[in-house]
Structures are given as C-alpha cells and as structure tokens.
Nucleic acid binder design. Structure first.
Lengths: 330, 330
DNA sequence: GTGAAAGCGCTAACAT
DNA sequence: ATGTTAGCGCTTTCAC
C-alpha cells in the first residue's frame, strides 16, 4: 500500500520493475486515487479560488477561462465565486473556499474587498489582487499598465486629427476605472490637448452607462469628435446610442473601448479598443499564488485598431474643398 | 467533538442551549469545517462536474454560469472541464472528476462522448446529456424542443412575406446542428414553402462558417431574402459578410440566429434570434443529476424578435408603386 | 527498496 | 442528550 502511494507520487526510491507492475495493476483495476483522502493527509487541497464581482461583464468569463486553463496546467483545480457586489454572497464565497481549504485566492474584483482579507489572511492563505492591494505578506498584486494602451489610443486619435476627445468613465469607486481615467488625462496632457470637464462622463461600465454617456455628450454645443470608453461594454452602449442618434461610426464620430473582450471584434463595425488580456491576468494570478516569492509579472495594455476610428468628420470634405480651390486657383 | 459535528449538521437531538454555545465557540475560534475530511468519511464530495467542448463558443460561459449558480444554490460546488474536441483532454477531465469523486457529471457537448460513458458509468456516477444519450440507468437526457422556436421563426419570416429562406447549418456530425436543420425543414414544409438544396449551407457554428455561408448564398442567381442560422455565432459571421458585401440588414436581407447568447442583443442592429436558455439547461442539468428519479424538464426555445428581420427587399417599393397606380386610377 | 503503523479531521454507530 | 470509538483512503515516518 505504501509502495503504491510511492509509485503514484513518483518517489524515486521505488524499484522500476515493481513500479511498472503497480502501474499495470492500477490500469487493470481501474484504480483512481481519492483526492479527498490525499488532501486530508497531505494538507494540500490542490484547489485555487477565484473571486469575481460582476457576472454580467463579459470580461470575466475570459478571465475565468484563463485561470481554469492555467490552473489545470499546473495540476490545480479552480473554485469560482462571484460576489455580484453583494457582501453576503462574498461571505458565502469565502466560507466555501475556506472549507475546501483552497491554497490561494485570486481576487479579481478590481477593488479591495476588505472583509475578504481578514478571514483569508488570518488563515495564511495567499492572495492576489489586481491593481492595488493592502501591503501584507502573502498578498501580491498584479499591476496593469493602463497608461501604455491609453496613451497609444489618445495618440492614435490625435494623429488622425482629433482634438475634441471625450471619455466615458466607469464608476468612481472602482479603482480600475479611476486609473483608466487618470491615464487618459495624463495622455491628453502629454499630447498637449485640453479636455473640458463636460467631456468626462461617469458611467458604470455597463451598456446603459455608455448610452447615457453618449446622450450627455451629444447635448453639448461643441460635441467631441472622438469618444474613449473605460471598458468595452460602455463602448458598445455608446455605439448603440450613437446609431440611434443617426450618427455613423466612425464617419461622424470615432470610438475606442477598453478590455478587448471577444464581442468587440464581432461588433459592426469591429470595435477599436485597448487590449487587456484576461488570460494574461489569469495566468499571472495563478503563478503569483503558487509562487509568492517572485512578484507577479505586470500586465500590459495595447491599442488594437479596428474600424471605429477614422479622421474627424469634415476632414475629408475640407480636404476636398481645399484641393478644389487649389484646382480652381490654377 | 461528536456534538459539534451534530450541531454543524443540524441533527435535532442536540440541546438547543448547548448548540447555541457551540455556535458561539465556532464563531469565536473561527472554526471552519474541513470539507475533505467530511467528504472522506461521508463519501459525499458535494461536487458536480460539467464538461463542455468548445470554449470559444460564447454559449458556454452562460451555461457554466448557470450551472455554477444552481449548484451553489443546492450546496454543491462545480468542477469544470473543457475538452475542446480533444480526446486526450477529455480523458484528463474524466480523470480529474473521478479523483475528486464528483457526484454527477453534466455532459454539455451537444454530442455523445463515448469514452466518457465507460469510465464514469462503471463508477455508477449519474450523468446528464443534452438531446440524446445512450439508454442506461443513471443517465438522463435534457431534451431541447428545437421545433417550437424554429417554427416561430420561419412563420415570422413567412408572415413578413419571405418566400426564399436559406439556412446556414452547423457541422453535420453535431446532433444539435442536424436537429435544428431538421426542425427548419419541418417548419418550412409545414408552411408550404420549398427550400432548394442550394439554400442549405453547412457551416461549423463559428463566425467564419457564417461568413462562408453568406458568400455562398450571394453567388446564387436567386439569392434568399432571409437567412436563418444554426447558432448566433454563425449569424454574426453572416452579418459581417453581408455588411462587407454592401448589403444592409434587415433592409436587403433578414437574418435570424439561434441561442440568444448575450452578444446578440448588443449587435448592431440587435439580432433577432431563437432563445435557448443556457441557464435553463444548466438548472435542469443540476436537478437531473441530484434527483435521477424524475426525468429532467425539457427546455423550450422561442423566437426573440429584435431588429434583423423585416419585409423582403422591394416589398415597400412594390407597395408604394401599387398605391401610386391606385391613385392614378382614381 | 519495501512493509508496518500512525494519523490527517471528520461522521456514524455504539454506549451511557 | 452526550461522550467514546472506529475508520473513511491516503501519506509519511519509522523499522527492517
């Protein structure tokens, strides 16, 4: 019995011949080791938890998929918990994870969830957060370089000739949202543009938020020629509102999203957006949980140009007019 | 110790006063029962498995989400496995599930996966399939009523005036795809339309399949005025190909999808489709696994009219012409 | 290199 | 109504 255990765990001290016989018997008998028993005695559950907030955001399925894949790759299983911004649901999640003795928890809610910390930290369970996390040992942070992608996007618009660029943000309480807005402000400053306060609308990272944002921006006496959104769902909402207003994208107005969720590519026209790979984040999270010695790799963001951006409305007409004048001038 | 166990498991024979003291101590000590140990001794893992095939199909995240939610609701945890149509990956999935001693497995691959059966069935693990499953005890089937939704869709098109309706199918080896195509044929027959073979294109349930389907249909000398698709991804591909061909939806051609994945609503224009709720299927699956006595509830499908369907091109013009003649005739 | 024995944290059958 | 005990299936000393 002990030998079988050694064979299964590939302890080198087993006679290869015996080991082979054991493997054959395992095959023949259809023996399957019992994970619960192994976990019980070894104290290692081989389980990793992921906690997400908002199910309805299509960013998360991709995140979870990536996490799951990476976890299986390194011999772990995944326990998923979604809080839906509900404290009670979160408590339940934590309880479940504690009971299953997860060996680490990735908190992918883009915000600090205080109640999580105490319960989990007190058990010494490694945790990984996105963006920002309380400084404690056993807790690591995956930093996202929002600036890079957003700078690329603003520059892209500027090069096309846009000077009036608006931003539809996410909720102010969400760190990832304020970080994106800040990155936008930095980029715009850097390039030497001025963005009036009326060009910044606070949405909520949902389609509806994007719709409201556009509705607001269109009431302005000098509406923007381009809109950047804090996430793709917002951008999709913007597309709908724009189309409802009879405006054509990108001819009348350019639009850039953030996240690069799968839908974005499928939109009509395909959405230009800033990619933040959920898979990368997930992989980084798994690594961080299992090896808390090395700090997790940062996640980069980058512009993906598709078809919702072009020169500002009128530019082409202006050009044509000018060339017309030039011809007449001859 | 036994008393604590009894309190936690709510065995009624415990003195309420003592029980209360136990709960207080649990609270104070931050005690968390060890699921592995409970599972080991009780033989109940409180784990349910879901196996899906194609990660890239956005139908599955919704299915999984529903499964997870329902499972948690009834006190179970979910083990996810995705095969990606790869036999080896499937073997791995099964192994993991066996090792974790899942109490049931939902095979949501829309096809029978033979190798699954032997390994799982031999352990007497309940299984649930979609659409069709080998007749064995412990195996139940969730039947999807494709006919209803598809009939509604065909009728919807017919009422609008469409007579030339094409169908972009899924792969022939996939049961769910052939069932949908058959339902389409039945519906069309019923209504008294004839569909030439050139109007049926076999795609593969991906965006690319939909694009190829449209490209084929547009080469026809008498192209269809409406296209139904075997799933929403196909329909989205169709939208792209149509738009690339300079055709407007629904003015030039009407389009109906199948599944009603979340994206569909967000498309521009929002996709008219046939809803098959992943959440319903998931809930039904969980129920079936835990209570194999009653057969699972069937899942219905129903038409969701959005904005990709209208009268055939030319109809309005014809009407106008006619009314013009009528006026002149006065 | 291999077998014997202890024990992981819990539940359930048995006493009291 | 509560305490005592055996044992779930495995890993890990400890002997040999």
């Amino acid at each position: 019995m002990a030998t079988v255990s050694r064979v299964i765990n590939k302890v080198p001290s087993v006679d290869p011949a015996l080991a082979k016989k054991v493997w054959e018997s395992i095959q023949k008998l259809g023996y399957v080791p019992n994970t619960q028993a192994r976990a019980l005695v070894s104290g290692r559950s081989k389980l990793l938890g992921v906690i997400i907030s908002d199910i309805t955001n299509p960013f998360f399925p991709e995140l979870i998929q990536g996490f799951e894949d990476k976890a299986v790759e390194v011999g772990y299983e995944t326990l998923i918990g979604s809080t839906n911004y509900d404290l009670q649901r979160m408590e339940l999640c934590i309880q479940r994870m504690l009971e299953r003795k997860v060996e680490g928890v990735a908190v992918m809610t883009f915000g600090i969830e205080e109640p999580l910390l105490d319960r989990l930290a007190s058990q010494g369970i490694p945790m990984v957060f996105i963006d920002l996390a309380p400084k404690k040992k056993g807790i690591s942070t995956i930093r996202v370089d929002y600036q890079k992608g957003i700078y690329e996007a603003v520059q892209h618009l500027a090069v096309l000739g846009h000077r009036r660029i608006a931003f539809i943000s996410g909720p102010e309480r969400l760190h990832s949202a304020v970080a994106r807005l800040q990155a936008f402000r930095n980029a715009v400053d850097d390039i030497g543009l001025r963005v009036p306060e009326s060009y910044v609308f606070y949405g909520d990272h949902t389609v509806e938020g994007g719709e409201r944002g556009v509705e607001h921006l269109l009431t302005l006496s000098r509406p923007p020629t381009a809109i950047m959104c804090s996430n793709d769902m917002t951008a999709i909402g913007a597309m709908h509102a724009l189309s409802r207003a009879g405006l054509s994208i990108p001819r009348d107005i350019s639009l850039i999203g953030f996240d690069d969720i799968r839908i974005s590519e499928y939109m009509l026209p395909p959405l230009t957006t800033i990619r933040m790979s959920g898979r990368d984040i997930a992989a980084s999270a798994v690594t961080a949980l299992l090896d808390s010695s090395t700090p997790p790799r940062d996640v980069e963001t980058k512009l993906v140009v598709r078809q919702t951006t072009t020169v500002p409305a009128g530019t082409l007409a202006d050009l044509r007019k000018k060339s017309g004048k030039a011809q007449r001038g001859r």
